[in-house]
Design a protein around this nucleic acid. Structure first.
Lengths: 263, 263
DNA sequence: CCGACTTTGTGCACACGTTCACAAGCGGTA
DNA sequence: TACCGCTTGTGAACGTGTGCACAAAGTCGG
């Protein structure tokens, strides 16, 4: 998060006079740099929806249809797609296959990204067996655990390696993404070993804030945090409801006590 | 996402002259409404870090220390905390326990939120056995699946119910959060049944965009999307690296072909 | 070939979230 | 009590992301 501002200096989001001459050259890099993080997440969703459409035999789709299927509004969808270039036909819509291939290119899915899962507990088992990874170009090629009883046992077709082998195995199998599914206390140590093994991307399921060098990208999935965000919305909604009720029922400005908020 | 703008009309984030008289009244509700979504997610992280500090015997902490432990900068942390009120002491810092209780209150954790998991496959198993939920106030009280071979079998201490019982079981056990861990094709139907059972919050692990009424809050965890975001950053970084290399090695403006980008 | 209709791509304005920088306030000290 | 140093809390500037509304650009029917 620090080196990011190395080369670019003041990123110009509007690429004014870069009309059309270079369809796929250095400009792609420049543009990729300017795609908002939020848009990238949505592009992945569009890709999934579009893949389903290809299977369904759909060849062309309008921004209105696609945005409805992806759960966003059409303006946002078009803006997101404009970040990766102009591949639609006005008056018609987008060619589904063309769009798929361009999104895949931008997301870097033309390369295979081999995945290693560390921590073969309940969650690790589930991840190793999860069909969603390989089918989307993320083959799981290595599993690690500290438990000697697990090493050698195949899970989802892949034998579990001992965590001490992490460096050599990751290197030989060209792992580019590490998934941490260990108990919280082990997470930082595992993370350090993954980094020293040359892994540049980490998906962290452990409820711990990982410290990593600038060149490593971390994304976290914290189930408890997700729950708590939902909890917040429940509470907020309950407050609003009771407030509305209070506004109708009692006119004095002091009231509304003991129903929702417990100090 | 639509009804939100119902009552408030122009939310005033700055609560200027609401000095101190009402420490815990209707103002809390007003304020809760104004907390940015992103801040809520971070508050959950702060809470986790602070809980660890309580266990470690820490009684007071400065914004600088806490922000470092939570992986954010101190200004953001202080602003986040200011959304929930002024509970720090200038020149000293924050009382850890006070902060914990206030964050818990804002996040609605003074109520227990019972959880139901639907779809007892690999992931469902992992979630049912996951210790992180109960310990943070989210007891798993019900499990559902369509498979008759599973119904009755206890997983993580809770017997699996058939999905047809979802309405009555959810009602009797007062489920407030539903977790969808089914295969994609089943997700929307399950979601509809959860909603009709009165569940207001849904955590969705299926790679599907769920359609729900306005009053239901959905959060999604899509592992493939997370992977693809990581993939995007790998690609971007590779592009930057090769571009830098190209800038050093070749001076003509056309070059850099065939190394990274495959059109 | 032309005009009507449809849908994209984007400039612009607004809202949201982040960061900065500093006054206000508190504890410790003489 | 008066001062000094430290840390909070927050106004204000900034940057990023979202939504609107429309010109540009294409198809289709006649």
């Amino acid at each position: 998060m620090a080196v990011k501002r190395g080369a670019g200096d003041e990123v110009v989001t509007t690429t004014p006079a870069t009309a059309a001459p270079d369809l796929d050259g250095p400009a792609v890099r420049e543009r990729a740099r300017a795609i908002p993080e939020a848009a990238v997440a949505r592009l992945a969703v569009y890709l999934r929806v579009l893949s389903g459409m290809v299977d369904g035999g759909v060849t062309t789709i309008s921004s209105e249809e696609l945005s409805a299927a992806a759960g966003v509004n059409s303006a946002k969808l078009r803006k997101d797609l404009s970040y990766i270039g102009s591949y639609g036909t006005r008056g018609v819509g987008y060619d589904v296959e063309v769009l798929v291939s361009h999104i895949e290119r931008i997301l870097g899915l033309t390369r295979k990204h081999s995945v290693a899962v560390v921590g073969i507990g309940n969650l690790g088992h589930a991840l190793a067996n999860y069909g969603g990874f390989p089918s989307r170009g993320f083959p799981v090629v290595a599993l690690f655990d500290v438990d000697d009883d697990l090493t050698g046992v195949p899970v989802g077709g892949i034998p579990v390696s001992h965590i001490d082998e992490i460096e050599q195995v990751c290197a030989s199998r060209e792992v580019s993404i590490g998934v941490i599914a260990t108990p919280p206390p082990a997470a930082q140590a595992v993370c350090d070993r993954l980094v020293s093994a040359g892994v540049q991307c980490i998906l962290n399921f452990a409820p711990v804030v990982l410290q990593v060098p600038d060149h490593v990208e971390v994304r976290k999935v914290d189930l408890a945090v997700e729950m708590q965000i939902l909890s917040f919305h429940v509470a907020r909604r309950a407050d609003e409801a009771s407030a509305e009720q209070a506004a109708n029922g009692m006119v004095n400005g002091v009231g509304v006590e003991g129903v929702v908020i417990r100090p």
